[in-house]
Amino acid sequence: MSYSNQISISKSGVPILAVAILAVIFAFGLFVVGYDQGHIFSVIMGEKAFDEMLIHELTHDMRHAAGFPCH
């Protein structure tokens, strides 16, 4: 008579790469909607971006509605 012992090992970790990607998306999205005052477009437009504040103006209503200090 032969015996067969089986042990099932289940593993379910959190992928670090996915966490890193999500963390970057979190920080970038929060900055865009809550804090940008022309910084992002200044990479392309220079100082003019700080005068026009396109992202600030575009996200203006959501900034107020979500509780971020806007101006």
Partner: peptide
């Protein structure tokens, strides 16, 4: 600006949703 409200909602939602996903995982 009102159109931007919805776009900003999508960006902020994706951002906060990303944090929620990390914590949930």
């Amino acid at each position: 600006q009102k159109g931007g409200q919805v776009l900003a909602g999508a960006i902020l939602g994706t951002s906060v949703g990303a944090l929620f996903g990390i914590v949930y995982a």
